[in-house]
């Protein structure tokens, strides 16, 4: 039983078709890594799953709920799906702790003490409990992204979406974020990760998805697709990013 099911999903930005009849099923506990050249629709695809973008055609079902404009359904789905952004998108006027507590307090209705305890639990999990009272701008990029991951975890989602989580980071910060993500994968979190970190993909992905021009061109276990890409476009893409 798949927790996310996308059937023939299409998405347009004006005349430009960002997604062309994309179908993808993700099972509970599965780790899917999506890669592809810029403009290939990979970010758009995962942004459709929690409706940061609304798809025009096709159907997306998350844990049995069909994604639509119905606020109740949307709330249900967003409660299941967390997201980590390329630019972290932390709330700059709130401390780390406040960033983590606002969702549990306002959405889940936890008390101050409960939210705080939960926030500290996840800050420990991303290994920065000592930064709780700082403001985001006082942290390094890697620390900020780990706070953002902890913020998502505080909502206790069943699925986590990562939209190029390491692309805005300095090289020395990438490892610490990937480490946290690997640890999450091991703990059994369902994850869909848009990234160009092929080492990470090889280590944790159950399936690799290669997208180009709004379509899924290739899909399969990382070992298979990396070692024997079926399409020429994917073969070329791998060559480019491994040789850069």
């Amino acid at each position: 039983m798949s927790i996310i099911s996308m059937q023939n999903v299409s998405k347009y930005f004006g005349d430009f078709q960002a997604l062309k009849n994309v179908s993808l099923d993700v099972a509970l506990g599965e780790r899917v890594v999506i890669c592809g050249p810029s403009g290939s629709g990979k970010s758009t695809l995962i942004r459709c799953i929690n409706r940061l973008e609304a798809h025009e055609d096709g159907q997306i079902v998350v844990d049995g709920t069909v994604l639509s404009d119905d606020p109740a359904d949307l709330e249900k789905i967003r409660g299941l799906v967390g997201m980590v952004f390329q630019q972290f998108n932390l709330f700059p006027h709130l401390t780390v702790l406040e960033n983590l507590c606002i969702g549990p307090r306002r959405v889940l209705g936890l008390t101050e003490a409960e939210a705080r305890a939960r926030a500290m639990k996840y800050l420990e999990r991303v290994q920065i409990p000592d930064q709780a009272d700082k403001f985001p701008r006082q942290l390094s990029g890697g620390q900020q992204q780990r706070v953002a991951i902890a913020r998502s975890l505080c909502m206790e989602p069943r699925i986590l979406l990562f939209d190029e989580p390491t692309s805005a980071l300095d090289p020395e910060m990438i490892a610490e974020v990937l480490e946290v993500m690997t640890e999450l994968a091991i703990s059994g979190m369902t994850m869909i990760v848009v990234t160009h970190e092929m080492g990470f993909a090889r280590r944790v992905a159950d399936r690799m998805v290669f997208m180009d021009k709004g379509e899924i061109v290739e899909i399969g276990a990382p070992g298979d697709v990396f070692d024997a890409p079926k399409s020429q476009r994917f073969a070329q893409f791998i060559k480019q990013i491994l040789n850069h």
Binding site: N50, L52, R78, M83, F85, Q87, N89, G103, V107, S152
Partner: peptide, 11 residues
Amino acid sequence: GQYEAAQSISL
């Protein structure tokens, strides 16, 4: 991104 982050935690 601030709106998107808020949406992603269901605010």
